Structures are given as structure tokens and as C-alpha cells.
Simulated scan of single mutants.
Amino acid sequence: MTQRAVLLANLGSPDKPETAEVRRYLNQFLMDPYVIQLPWPLRRMIVSLFVLPTRPKASAEAYQSIWWPEGSPLVVLSQQLRDAVQAKTDVPVAMAMRYGQPSIEQQLLKLCENPAITEVLFMPMYPHFADSTVETSIQEARRVIKAHDLNITLQVVQPFYDDPDYINALVESASPHLNEPYDHLIFSYHGLPESHILKRDESGSHCLKQAECCATPHPAHATCYRHQVMRTTAAFAAKAGLEASRYSVAFQSRLGRQKWLGPNTEDRIRELAASGARKLLVICPAFVTDCLETLEEIQIRGQEVFEEAGGEQLTLIPCLNTHPAWVDVLSQWCASDPTD
């Protein structure tokens, strides 16, 4: 008889908000070929010469501004989510990080200490497909299974960017903020180099080649990050009853000089302040758990940018974190088969 376990997987965090720890974390993250999609020698040169000499110190200071007494907010909240889901399901549930601790390898090996476990339902905690999040996590899980000859079947939950249960939970979690007065809502998604989008379009003629590529049905949408974030936005807006003039999409967290998806979130914040907006809401649906990119980049730096441009109040709508509606959704997935 098949006995299932569940492994939730998020991106990861340094162990401490200190330069050495952040350098180690960034090296692991940026040397992943799914993140910087260049041959190893070029990737090694860029990371070693242009990133690691200076960025770890600045990133450590950013982490220090949002670090909790219990540790990294991402790791702490992820563990709380695991505990909440475990309390509502009979199957074993574990939480892993693609980079840092606890690793996917550690958690898979721990689950497989129980010889009755024959199937692992692997849930990358990213609503939208990207090589640098979903694909690298799946490939790491498969590498571990092969390397250790684990006698388990890996079932993978597919990107859930427009899943009705996910959208309903997202809207429910955001509703208290949407019910308060505001001028504009920004959907701020994690940025992605355009090259990642183009590489996944096997036709070579659709993604980013047409003005309405995301709205025109195409097989490439199955792995197109931009299409999927637009679908999330549209589904959220329809469910929440948002007026088209009161929300917009932007992309944050750029790194390097290549062309990234736009518009840039900070630029959009400045534009809205210049147009007279005084109260902004920002939601970050690419993340299901609050982390450096939401708590520091949006809540702290975003507010500073908004004030400097003439705005007054920028409010970050928290990620789903451990919202009861989200816990219910994940608990239901644990017992079902959302892998199709």
C-alpha cells in the first residue's frame, strides 16, 4: 500500500544575517545554473568578481533589518506553516529549502527513514513556474533520490497560479487591506530576466514577441512566468472586484545588467507618487511566505522610495504565510492529487 509523505519547499535563507553566512548562501544560490543561465566559467567569474566582493555585506545589512529573534522570517514562517498543515493532515509533512537549511536532501532522507513511505508529494512553494525556483527545486529532489537510491515515487504539485483555491485564499488574506481606503494597488512580482522567458518558448516566436503574447493562448504558457503572473493578477482582480484603473503589475528584485521583465516596482512607486497617489498597497503574490524581498525591499525600502517621491503611506499586504485559508488549501492538497 502506498504511504504518502509531503515535502514543502521554499527558496531559502542564510543561517545568520552576517556577511560570511550571506556570502556562503549567495554563492550557493547564484552558482545554480538554473539561476544564472550561463556556462560555468562565466557564471563563476560573474559571481566571484562582481557579486561576492561587495553584495554580501549590503545583503547582510538588509537581513539584519528584518531578522527576528527566532531567526530568518522566511524559515520561521515556513516552519510555522509546516506545523499548521501537519496539524490538519495525517500524512507526514516536512519543510525544506532549496538553498541553505534545512536542505531538500536532509528532509528527503529524514522522511525515507520510515520504510513505509513510498511516495513523496513535492510542493514547490512558488505559484508561478520559473527555472530558478520551480525547476531547480524539482531537479534537486530528483538528484537526491537518484544519488541515494531512494525507493520512493516523487509526485510534483504543478504551479498553482490560477488555482481557484489559491486565488480565494489570496483574496481572503488581502481583504482587510482592500477594505481600507487606498489610491492604488501594485502587484509586485519577483523579477526574471527576459532570457529565461525566451529560452522556454520552443516556438521562438510567441513569448515577448507579440504585444498581447500573454493573453493569446499558446503552449509556451505552461512554463511562461510572465503569462502566469498576469493570470494570477486577472483572477485576483476578478475575485476581489477591483477596478482596472486601481491596480497595476510591476517586477522587483533585479540583479545584473541583462534585460529583466518590467516595469520595475520602484519606478512604478515613483510614478504613482508623482501622479498624486498618497496611499499605496503592495501585494507580492510570487511569494507565499514573507521574506527579505517583501519585508525589506517593499515594506522598508518601498516606503522610503514612496515618501521621497511625495507619497505618504505604503502598506505591504502580508504574504499568505499561515493564514487559515492557505493552511486549509495545503491540507486539502496533501490528501488529494493536485499534480495533473
Rank of each mutant, 00 (worst) to 15 (best):
K88Y: 02
L121C: 14
F50D: 14
M97Y: 13
E105P: 07
E113S: 11
M97K: 11
R55A: 15
A62K: 07
V85W: 04
V91C: 03
E105M: 12
E113W: 00
T54S: 09
S78W: 00
I104V: 15
A96F: 08
A58W: 14
Q86W: 11
Y126V: 04
V120N: 07
W68Y: 15
V47I: 09
P73E: 03
Q86L: 10
V51F: 13
D90S: 07
W67I: 04
E113D: 15
A58D: 12
R82A: 11
M45A: 12
R55W: 13
M123Q: 03
A96Q: 14
A58H: 13
Q106C: 09
Q107T: 01
I117F: 07
I46Y: 07
M123T: 05
P53I: 09
L77Q: 12
P56M: 12
F122D: 02
V120C: 11
S78K: 09
D83W: 03
S103V: 02
S72C: 13
S65I: 10
V91H: 02
P53Q: 11
L111Y: 00
A58K: 10
S65G: 06
V51P: 03
R98K: 14
P69S: 04
E61S: 02
Q79E: 13
F50Y: 15
V75T: 07
Q101P: 00
R55D: 13
T118Y: 06
M123I: 14
L81N: 02
E70Q: 15
T54R: 10
P53D: 08
R55V: 15
A94V: 10
W67G: 03
A87N: 05
S48K: 13
S78L: 05
Q101S: 10
